[in-house]
Structure formats: C-alpha cells, structure tokens
Design a protein around this nucleic acid. Structure first.
Lengths: 201, 201
DNA sequence: TACCGAGCATGACATCTGTCATCGGGGAGG
DNA sequence: CCTCCCCGATGACAGATGTCATGCTCGGTA
C-alpha cells in the first residue's frame, strides 16, 4: 500500500483527487493539506511514501515544499501537479529533486500510474511540458538582470526598482536594456512578460 | 434526479468533480466537456438541467458559454466554478444570467448544495468573491479607456496600440493618461495590472 | 434651445526610458 | 599573466511617454 499525502489549496480539487486516488487498491491518501506549511507538518507526522503537491500554494510553493521534504524526509518521494505549466517551474522542480511533474489536464489513471512510478523510484515528466521547457531553453539573463526584471514586472518606474534593488537608476536601466535585448522584446514590460512565461524570472 | 453537464479543461479536475457529484444520490453527471464549443454541443444533445462551467476554457470562456446556453436552452441553469476569483468576471457572469458562482476552494458538499439550489431556481454567489467584487466597485473607466488599457496590457508601445484601436497616437495617450489617473497608478503598465485584478478590463 | 459629457484629435512641454560609450573592480579560466 | 565576463556606475542623447490646454462633433438631457 502506497501512502500518499495531498497538498492543494483548492478544497474541491483536493477532495476530488483524494476520492479518485482512494479508488485505487494500492493507494491510500493519508493526509490532505491546503498550504505549504501544513503539508510540511503533516508530512513530518505521517511520513507518507509520496507527496503530491500543487505548484501554487498560498504560502510556500510546491517546489519549495518538495525541497524541504527531501532534506527532512529522504524516503518521501515528491511530485508536482500544476494547472499552468511554465517551463521554469519544471526546471526548478527537477533540480529540487522532484521525481514527477504533470499538468492537471491528465487523467486520473495517469496520475495514479505516476504515483506508482515515482514510489518505485522512477521519474515521470509530462511530455508536453518537457517539450515546452526544452524549447524555451536556458535563461540568457544574468542573475542581476533577472532580479531587476522581476522587480520591473509590477510596472514600477526605474527609480523604485533602483531603490528596491539597492542600485543606481542608471545601472537599473543598463540591466533592463540588456534584458530587453536578450529577450527580443520592445520594452521592459514586454520583456518581463516573456521572461515570466519562459520561467526566467 | 438532477442531470448535470460538466465543463473544465483539466481532465483530472473534471473527472474528480464528476466522481464527487456522482456520489450524490440526486445528481447525475450526464456529460463532460473540455472546451466551450464541446460544452455547447453536448448541452444541445443532452439538454442537462444544470451546466457547471469552469471560467477558463481553451476557446470560449465559461461566461460566454453560459450566455449562449441561456439563449438556446432557457431551461438549462448555469453556474461557474473558478480558480481565480476576479471581481469583473463575477459581474459579467451575473449579467449573463449565471445563477451560481463559486471558487474551487469550496468543498464538494457546497458544490452539490449549490447545484441543487441553482436547479431549484435559486442563486448562490461565493460570499468572499462577492465581497471582493463589491469592494472593487464599479469601473470608473469609459468604454474606450478600457479598450485602450486592455491593448496596453501586453506592454505594446503607444504606436501599436493606436494602430490596433484605429486611433491617433495622441488620443491613445490621452486615454491612457486618464486611465492612469483614475486607477491611481504611476504609469499605464501598473494601471493595466490594477484594472485587470479589479476586473475593469 | 442650451448645456454637458464622451469620443477623437492636435500641439507643446517636461519626464521617463532605452541605448550607447566608457570606466573601474573582481573572479574564473586559458 | 592576460583575458573575458559579470557587477556597478556615470554621462549623453534620441525617442517614448505622461500631462495639459484646446478644439471639434455628436447624443442625451434639463
């Protein structure tokens, strides 16, 4: 019997997934969490075999929870289920030790299968998400460029970005200019949008 | 027996919701659709009592489907289930004749209850979403301001917005300036962000 | 009828942004 | 050691953007 912990902030979805997984004979949902912190606490108490984590949780995101889990409970495998498959998340997840990554568009059959695969020590990545991640490629942005572009994503003026990044306004503009060039965008706002969809920030 | 049609692009969620609703004795899920068009076709063929629609579908969005359904099948009640509760969607939905509106954070119990309420001719709006909608208030933007701001949301330069809106660049800038003032933002990008979260565009 | 607000436009002006050249310091690698 | 690249900064310049005043037309309304 594979003991599963579920984390998803949407009650409806979480309950429904639990119901579906519970129908499988070899799977047992031992706990459900609505937040990242709750998931960590439950995992410590219940020591599940597999943690199925939603990518977007109110506090910590799924990848952060997975990373923490690997440090504390090496025997617990982790997998991510997500609505919005952004390439960057996939990469972060894999480097964080996540063994399964799929979109919520898959069927319950596949979910159950992947839980078993992951529990057995295998890996599974949604083929479509994998393809998107590969096509998006490596981030061409340097660390600071990414920082500054992330701050620019809210639409803040240069001066505020400079304050928040503890840089001079001129330097911020240089970084933004460089980032705009690398992303092929027409201005920083479009650059921020593109970088976000590609998971670069 | 209440006959229910489900529409959600996420296979996992849709199947799970169907499983949960199917457990209720007085509810029967007669059809499942992954797109708006598919939902309309199924509805025409199956004539369900209640259509439970996800807000975000690949082609038409949930509100558009609901509006079309009311025109074609007046006996079919509609309700919207959504992940991201933006106030503007709620208003659009209600004016479109939708009778139930809730977030996916609710429990399956509530979902089933609301299906029954809606089927009986009642209405139900998630209290939290309703509160947000009320606090966001009426849009202060004129129609053209909203148009232009929506085009600006992608980060396009003024000249392109002007072309796409068939306006002179100067006029675009006037509308944007007015919109920036009304939203209390520092520039049009922030204004677009704010307006989007408030459902004004 | 007279007035008002929305839509659309132009022109002028002050800022903000994007780009480029240039500089210095520091760490990695040939 | 020299070179390359990233970080951080400055100054200058062109072009984009935000703001304001002003003018016109057209519906609706007092």
């Amino acid at each position: 019997m594979i003991r599963v912990l579920l984390a998803d902030d949407e009650h409806l979805i979480r309950g429904a997934m639990a119901a579906l997984l519970g129908l499988e004979e070899d799977l047992q949902v031992v706990g459900q969490a609505a937040t990242g912190a709750e998931a960590l606490n439950l995992a410590r108490a219940l020591r599940p075999d597999v943690a199925v984590l939603d990518l977007q949780l109110p506090d910590l995101d799924g990848v952060a929870v997975a990373t923490a889990l690997h440090a504390e409970l090496p025997t617990c495998r982790t997998m991510i289920v997500t609505s919005h498959g952004l390439p960057g998340h996939l990469k972060r997840a894999l480097t964080g030790g996540v063994r399964g990554f799929l979109a919520k568009t898959v069927s319950a059959d596949i979910l159950a299968t992947v839980v078993r695969t992951v529990h057995a020590g295998g890996r599974y990545v949604d083929p479509q998400l994998a393809a998107e991640a590969i096509s998006a490629g490596e981030s061409p942005l340097t660390a600071r460029e990414a920082d500054v572009l992330a701050l620019a994503a809210t639409g803040a003026p240069v001066e505020e970005i400079a304050r928040r990044a503890a840089l001079s306004p001129g330097t911020v503009r240089n970084y933004l200019s460089s980032a705009v060039g690398k992303t092929g965008a027409a201005n920083r706002h479009e650059a921020a949008r593109l970088a976000r969809t590609r998971g670069w920030i």
